[in-house]
Design a protein around this nucleic acid. Sequence first.
DNA 1: CTAGCTTCCCGAACCGGTTCGACAAAGCGA
DNA 2: TCGCTTTGTCGAACCGGTTCGGGAAGCTAG
Lengths: 348, 348
Amino acid sequence: MNIGEIARRAGVSRSTVSYALSGKRPVSKDTRRKIQQVVDELGYRPSASARALANGRTSTLGLVFPPAGNHYTGMQLDFIGSVVEAAAAYDYDVLLSPSGMDSDRSFQRLLGERRVDGAILMEIRLEDDRVDHLAALDFPSVTIGRTARPEGGRWVALDHTALVQACVHHLADLGHRRVAFVNRPEQLLRAGYESAHRGLDGFTKAAAERGLTVRTYCCGDDAASGQSCVQRILHDDPATTALVTLNEAALGGLYRGLAQAGRHVPRDFSVTGVVAGRWAETVTPQLTAADVPAADMGRLAVELLVERLDHPDAPPRHHLLTPPISLRASTGPSGATPEADTRPGTTP
Amino acid sequence: MNIGEIARRAGVSRSTVSYALSGKRPVSKDTRRKIQQVVDELGYRPSASARALANGRTSTLGLVFPPAGNHYTGMQLDFIGSVVEAAAAYDYDVLLSPSGMDSDRSFQRLLGERRVDGAILMEIRLEDDRVDHLAALDFPSVTIGRTARPEGGRWVALDHTALVQACVHHLADLGHRRVAFVNRPEQLLRAGYESAHRGLDGFTKAAAERGLTVRTYCCGDDAASGQSCVQRILHDDPATTALVTLNEAALGGLYRGLAQAGRHVPRDFSVTGVVAGRWAETVTPQLTAADVPAADMGRLAVELLVERLDHPDAPPRHHLLTPPISLRASTGPSGATPEADTRPGTTP
DNA sequence: CTAGCTTCCCGAACCGGTTCGACAAAGCGA
DNA sequence: TCGCTTTGTCGAACCGGTTCGGGAAGCTAG
C-alpha cells in the first residue's frame, strides 16, 4: 500500500501520484480521477514517517508538561484537552512529553531526534533554562506563563499579579483586615515557578496598598495539605477572616479545614483565589474566583505556535490574560452581621 | 548533523556509524571510541523520522481519549499522566488523539498514516466499532475497559459490576433500604459506555439480592447536574437515605444538593461510589469509595501494549481490577441514632 | 512546415537512517 | 607457505515519500 503500488495500478509514475494527491503541480483531469479511484479502492494513506523525512516537517507539536510527581490539577487537564483539539484543527498531532527530573532526556527526544515541529511548555519558571535553551536554538515554541524577561518570546499567560491583587482588593472592599495567602508548594516557589512568585508579589503589593495584616503560606498540592494549612493559619492568627489561594488542588482541603475549625464560609471566613471555573463550582459554597480560562489558553498557545511555524518571520506575539473575578458564594463581608447571609451578587 | 556528517568526520562509512551506535554488529574498540567522540562533540542524535521509515517502527504509542465535549474527570488526568510516564520508561512517546465525533479522521491519522506502533483506547463501549476495527486489522492495541465480548483481547478494566455491588452491600449492611444510583450522563449510557452499563447492572443485581427499594438516575458530568440530580432523587422519594455514584465530576454537586436539602452527610444520608482516591479526599466529608487506581491502570495498559509489540505471538493478557472500598467519612448507619457520629472505621 | 509554447507526465535524486552481502586483513593450524 | 576462519569495515540497496529538470505530445502562430 505504498505510493509505488498506487502508481503501478493507476498506470502512472510515482511522482504523478504524489502531485495528484498534493496538488502542487497540475495533473490532467482523467489521470487524477484514475489515481483517486485506486487510492479510494485500496484505502491508501501516505506514511507519516516517509513524508516527514522527505519534507522535514512532522506535523506534530510537543506538549511539555510537568511530571506526575506534582499532582495534576483540573486546570492542566482542561488545558491539555484544548491543546489537542486546537492542534487537530490545524492538522497537527500532539506528542506528550513529561519534563520530569530527567528533563534532558525527553528534551533530547523532542528536539534532538526532531520528533516535533514546535513545542508548548507548561509550568514555566521565572528563570527557565528550558526556555533559554529553546530560544538559543531558535526552536519554535510557546510558553504557558512568562519568564522574568518575556520580551521577544511567544507566550500566553495569566496576569497572576493583577489577579491576586484583584482578589485582595475584593476582600478589602468587604472589610477584611487580616488575610492569608495560600500559595503553591514551597518546593515550587523555591524553584522559581512563575505563578507562585507573581501571585505572591500581587498579594503583598495589594496588602500593602490596603494596609492589611497578612501572612503567606506554602501548601502542598493535595487536600490533606490544604486542611493542615488552614490549621496553621488559624493557629498563627485566629483573627484571620479570609484567604486567597492559587492552589486549586488544595481547595477541598482548605474548605474542610475551615469547617473543622468551626468557621462557616462565607459568614465567618471568606475564600477566594485563582481557580479554573469548572472546579470553582464543585466546592460548596461555590468559590468566588478569577476563573482560569484554561481552554482558551490552550487554543491561543496553539495559534501562536502555528503562526510561528507558518510564518517564521512574523514578529512574536503574546497574550496576557486577566479574567474577571466571578462572584459566587465563598466571600462575604467581614464580621458576623445579620446581613452576612445576603450575598453581594452572583454571576450565572 | 546527519549520519553522513558523523561518518565523514570519524573517517568511516555511514554503516559503521550505524552499527557502532546500535551495537547490532561488533565494531572495533578504537573505531567505536572515535565515533562516539564525534557524536558527543556535535551532539548528534539520529532523526526519528528517518529511523521510523527505515525500520518500520515509530516508537510512539497512541492514546485515544474522549473529546473535550464530555468533561474530563480527574481520573482521566491521572491516567494520562501515568501512561506517559510508563511509556517513557519503555522508550516510547505518547501521541494524543481525540476520538471526537469525527473519530474516523484521527483514526486514519494514527493507523492509516502509521504514526504509532500501537494504541490505548479509553472510554470504550460494550459494542465498540473502534475495537472491532482494530481487531480486524490485527493492530496492536489495549483497551481501558472491556467490550461485551472481551475474550482474546488485551485490556485493563475495573470490575464495575462488582464494585458497585460492593457499594450497595456496604450501604445495605448499614441498614439503608432506599438507595439511589447516580450514573454517567444518559447520552453515554445510551451510547453503550461500559462503566455506565456494568455499574448499573451491579446496582440492580445487588439491590435485588438485598431487597432494596431503588431508583436509578443519569446525571451530567458537572456540579450543576449533580445538584439538580439530588433534587430529583429527593423529590421522587424523600425517604431515600443513600446513593451510589460513578459520576466523579458530579460529586461536588451531589454534596451541595444534599446540603441544600438539609441532609447531613453521613448522619442523614450516605454517599458512596467509584471515584479516584485523590478526588474522593477533596470533598467533605471524605468519600467512602472504591478508589479507582488510575495510575496503576495506565501503567498496566502500557505494559500489555509493549508486551504485544515485543512479542507479537504472546497470548493476550488482561487485568480485571477490583479495588477494595476505602472507608472514609461519607457513609453511616441509616436512621439518625446517637451512634451515627461514631464512624465505623477509617483507612489511612 | 517549423519554431515556440503549453500541457502533462516521467525518471532520477534526495531526505537520513538500517541492513545485507561481500571483501580485505589478520590470526591460526597444518 | 597455503588454506580457512574470524574480525572489522564498506558499498549498495532499501524504507516511502517529495521535488526538480526535462522531454514528448499537442496546439498555435508565422
